[in-house]
């Protein structure tokens, strides 16, 4: 029997900024589901944003799925494969999945397969409640992600 792939689901965003919390809330739901299903090879983490030490966390994984809220022109959610990038920002407040992947490759010589799950959001004020449309998108993304993990 093939060994189960090591998967990390990592959501990021701010649960105090309405739909920006999509990554966090979806990760929490997936975490509950994983515990219920006893999927021991899947780990879930979340944070306000990505940081350089996360390169260390993804280095020993086979598959990494980052989740973030999106303002892009998508219907509800979209999964894209992440390519490495070395783009430098001018403040420490931005680290992208592609930057982390590149850092992981260069420092640890590891190349996990990294995806980014974009979930469409609409409003971003200092409020804790997500919009109904964002919640609907999260529900769809949740069903998709469960299938994706089971089939990975």
């Amino acid at each position: 029997m093939a060994k189960a792939k090591k998967i990390l689901v990592f959501g990021y965003g701010n649960p105090g900024r309405q739909d920006d919390g999509l990554g966090i809330f979806l990760s929490e739901r997936i975490d509950n589901w994983i515990k219920k299903e006893n999927l021991n090879s899947v780990k879930v983490d979340y944070n306000y944003q990505l940081n350089i030490e996360d390169a260390h966390e993804i280095a020993d994984k086979d598959i990494v799925i980052f989740i973030d809220a999106s303002k892009e022109e998508i219907d509800d959610y979209a999964l894209t494969k992440v390519k490495p990038s070395d783009k430098l920002e001018f403040t420490s407040h931005f680290v992208s999945p592609s930057y982390l992947l590149n850092l992981c490759n260069v420092i640890y010589s590891k190349t996990p397969v990294v995806y980014l799950l974009h979930v469409k959001g609409y409003k971003w004020k200092f409020l804790e409640e997500m919009t109904e449309d964002a919640k609907n998108n999260m529900n769809k993304a949740y069903d998709f992600l469960k299938d994706f993990i089971l089939n990975s």
Partner: peptide
């Protein structure tokens, strides 16, 4: 950028939605 970066300004952070413009 180097001049600004020395201060590492906190630019009203903690929203990180995708689909933004570059510098």
């Amino acid at each position: 950028e180097v001049a600004i970066r020395a201060y590492d300004p906190c630019l009203s952070c903690a929203t990180h939605a995708l689909g933004q413009m570059p510098l």
